[in-house]
């Protein structure tokens, strides 16, 4: 049985890998280690779930509509060199 301090160190070690786990970028052994650990550690499960929900919320962002006036200004600016020069 692990002592409390080493158990906490194990939590911290896995804590550093939670983003990789969420992104599917851990190797199978690393994935299994996290899944085995969170099935018995409520603190790490809470870390994982709150982090996963944070990432999911970031991914729900919608577009900010381009202001029409700015779009017109941009189009005019970037086509200036194409206009025939006077004379």
């Amino acid at each position: 049985m692990r002592c409390k301090a080493s158990a906490h160190a194990h939590c911290l070690e896995l804590f550093e890998k939670l983003s990789d786990y969420i992104d599917g970028e851990l190797d199978p052994a690393g994935r299994l280690a996290i899944e085995a650990h969170v099935s018995g550690c409520i603190a790490c499960l809470a870390c994982l779930q709150t982090l996963r929900q944070t990432v999911a919320l970031c991914r729900t962002g919608t577009d900010h509509p381009v202001p029409q006036e700015f779009s017109r200004k941009l189009s005019a600016l970037l086509t200036v060199p194409l206009r025939p020069t006077a004379g």
């Binding site: 906490h8 939590c11 911290l12 804590f15 550093e16 409520i42 603190a43 790490c44 499960l45 809470a46 870390c47 779930q49 709150t50």
Partner: peptide, 10 residues
Amino acid sequence: ERVEPVARVP
């Protein structure tokens, strides 16, 4: 860097 003691997932 800490893992806070919690009773349940929020």
